[in-house]
Structure formats: structure tokens, C-alpha cells
Design a protein around this nucleic acid. Structure first.
Lengths: 123, 123
DNA sequence: GTCATTACTTACATTATTTATAGTACCTAA
DNA sequence: TTAGGTACTATAAATAATGTAAGTAATGAC
């Protein structure tokens, strides 16, 4: 967020990886702290800024804004502003955004079984 | 890596999210810069430290070590040391680690189509 | 004795991401 | 006139992740 330093090694590493590995590319896009959770909420329908905020306990408005902007920039969500007062802004998954559904489901399934495995660990 | 500050807001946010969202949990585990790429290389068989290093242009030994340690800690890979000189260490996916295959494939598919979509964007 | 090889470790520096806190514009309703 | 709701923005600070550079142990080849 804020500003990325395009001369950093980190930047060029990410670029190179993204270039040759689609999974690294995808991970860079959706890897943010709240990104996937936002998407998974949006999977069940459009939501307003304030509604998302309520669903994500602990997120700051700044973080939510940043993540939404990033998602919008990557065409994963669309943003609709209604010229009302007080303002109303709705966020909705785009088609490619909705395509994340299977990714999210796989991740969720894996996460669940991993949690279970670790939980079973003999102490 | 290094040390996580367990009193930070970030830490408790991650904990809370991981707790209620398996996809956020999974993302925390495999979200590292090189994690998925390492796993995807290991999907096709065990590899030595030096072999991995060659396959990941740009990674430093420190980073590779850190990521491997983290993966090992999460039981995603196993580490076998052969008492030889010079030393030989092999890394291999565990069963749960191998379970990441479908996650990786979904991510890769999504990444590919996203790349294509963005590439088509009218300038 | 010296060098090469391998898989690391250590100390430190830099960059990136996340959090904290306060403030803004707009109109409405009291 | 004042307060209130909504969706933000600005700035600074804290935390986390990554990178740089150098060094280590063991042993066999020379």
C-alpha cells in the first residue's frame, strides 16, 4: 500500500516470481491481511462500506479502504457510489472476483483439515 | 519471521481471523513470499536445499532457510538430514503438505485467467 | 596445511504492511 | 445552531517481512 519502492530487491523478486508462477502472482494479489475475508463475505452479495466494517471486527477504516481500493484496482470488486446524503457506497464482486470462489473453497477445506491435524497433535 | 510480537494488534487480529475463517488461517500459513513456490516445486518430488535454491532465482539462503523452517513447523514439509560430508538435507512434502496441490492448482488457474483479463484491458 | 563443498547461522539494514488517531464534506433533522 | 450519520483522507508511528553480508562446522581432496 502507500508506496512501493520499485528499486527494491523485494519488488523485483515479486515481479520475477509473478511473471513465471501464476500461483505466486495470485498470492500477491489476494495475500493481504483482510483480502480473502472481504471477498468471502462478498461472495454472498454486495455490501456497503459500513456493513463490511461490522463484519470485520478489528479492522480500521483505513485498512478497509486500502484493501477495497486494491481489490478494485485489480478488478476483483466494483464500487458503486450513490449520490445520497449520507453517502452510500456498495461493493460487489466482479466476474473474475467471483472466480475466486473455488480458490477460497479449496483454501478453506485445506485450512480446516490442517487445523484438525495440528489440533490432534500429541502433546 | 524473526519474532512476532504477541501483544500487537496485528497479532490478535490475525488470531481472531484465523479462528473464525479457515481461509484466513490457511492464508497466514502459506502466505509467505516464497512459500507456495517452494511447495509447488516439491509437489514433483523431494529436493535438497541447494536444488531449491537454484530453482528460486533471487532467494537468499536466509530466506530459504526461514521459509523451510516455517513450513516444517507447520508440518507441511519434512526434513531429512544425511550424516555425510558435505552435508545433505532433503525436503519433502508431508501428506497435509501434498494436500496443498488442489489449492495451488486453483490459485494457478485463477492467476492465469486474471493475468489474461488484465492483459486484455483496453489502454 | 589449505581449499572446496554444503547447509546453514548471525547481526544488522532496509522495505512493506498494519495500526492509531484525528479530521473532512455533505445534507438532514432537531 | 448543533449534532449525527456515512464513507472516507492525512499523518505518523509501530510492527513484520525481507535483504545484505559475513561467518561456521565437518571432512575429504590436493
Amino acid at each position: 500500500m502507500t508506496e512501493i519502492k520499485q528499486s527494491s530487491t523485494n519488488f523485483s523478486n515479486k515481479l520475477a516470481l509473478s511473471d513465471e508462477c501464476s500461483e505466486a502472482y495470485a498470492s500477491n494479489i489476494i495475500g493481504g491481511q483482510w483480502t480473502l475475508v472481504i471477498c468471502s463475505w462478498l461472495l454472498s452479495g454486495k455490501l456497503r462500506f459500513g456493513e463490511l466494517k461490522k463484519k470485520l471486527p478489528g479492522i480500521t477504516e483505513r485498512m478497509l479502504t486500502l484493501q477495497l481500493r486494491k481489490l478494485e484496482e485489480h478488478k476483483i470488486i466494483s464500487r458503486t457510489v450513490y449520490a445520497e446524503v449520507p453517502p452510500r457506497v456498495e461493493y460487489e464482486l466482479t466476474e473474475i472476483g467471483y472466480g475466486l470462489k473455488s480458490v477460497i473453497m479449496e483454501l478453506e477445506a485445506w485450512g480446516t483439515s490442517h487445523k484438525k491435524l495440528i489440533g490432534e497433535q500429541p502433546v
